[in-house]
Computed example of a mutant assay.
Amino acid sequence: MPRPRLAATLRAVRPAVMVTESRPVERFVAAFRRDAETDGRAGAFGLAVDVAVQYAEAKEHKRFGTGSGPSAKLAVQHDVLDRGIYAEFRHALGERRCPRCWPPSSAGLTSRAEDPSGRHRPLQQ
């Protein structure tokens, strides 16, 4: 787990957005990786990191008009991991999502909605 004091503070504050330099994020990832290796889930953790990077790159390419976005397979992998491993990350970091991007938990998980300019817009339910 991340440093206990920082992790406890993040859980108490529950930030929807966190602006930081790369080092604290690297520490969080390293701590999560150690925990996954200890629990025998290093393979799942590696897959989750790979899918997250590929998904983010595909979304970025779509936003800049240099790609078509995540493939259907990648989107399904991301959605499945979002309900498992990514949820564990969010829980450790305060478990709060931007209310303009995500529906309430009672509505279930759906994909983020963005307009072509990259700004957030509410999901249609």
Rank of each mutant, 00 (worst) to 15 (best):
R11M: 06
A16L: 11
E37A: 14
V53S: 06
E37K: 11
Y86F: 13
G40N: 04
R34V: 02
P24C: 03
R5L: 14
F64H: 14
L6G: 03
A30P: 00
T9Q: 14
V76G: 05
A56T: 15
A36F: 01
R96V: 00
G43T: 08
A31F: 01
L109K: 13
L10R: 00
A75F: 03
E60K: 09
V49T: 01
A92H: 08
V80Y: 08
A56I: 06
A36M: 04
G65E: 06
M18N: 08
A48W: 00
G69Q: 07
R63C: 00
L6R: 10
S105L: 08
D79V: 01
R96W: 00
M1Y: 06
T66V: 11
R41V: 06
A72M: 08
K73V: 11
K59E: 15
P70N: 15
R3P: 12
A113C: 11
S106I: 11
S68P: 06
D115M: 08
V51Y: 00
R27D: 12
P122W: 02
V13W: 03
G94P: 01
A36C: 06
R34W: 02
S105V: 13
I85M: 09
P116A: 06
C101V: 05
E88N: 10
S22G: 11
P70V: 07
R11C: 05
D39V: 08
P24T: 02
A87E: 13
K59M: 15
R34N: 03
E60C: 09
S105E: 14
R11W: 04
R121G: 07
A107L: 10
G40W: 04
K59C: 13
L123K: 10
S111K: 11
R34L: 02
A87H: 08
R5D: 12
T66S: 13
D35S: 13
P99L: 04
L74P: 05
E88P: 02
S106Y: 12
A48S: 07
D79H: 15
F89S: 08
E21W: 09
T9G: 14
R41I: 03
R121M: 09
F64K: 12
A92Q: 07
A7Q: 10
T110H: 12
R34G: 02
A58W: 01
H78T: 07
D39H: 13
W102L: 04
R96C: 01
L74A: 04
L10F: 05
V29I: 10
G43K: 04
G43F: 00
L6K: 04
P104F: 01
K73I: 05
P70G: 09
R100I: 10
Q124P: 10
H91Q: 10
Q124L: 15
V80C: 07
P24G: 02
T20C: 13
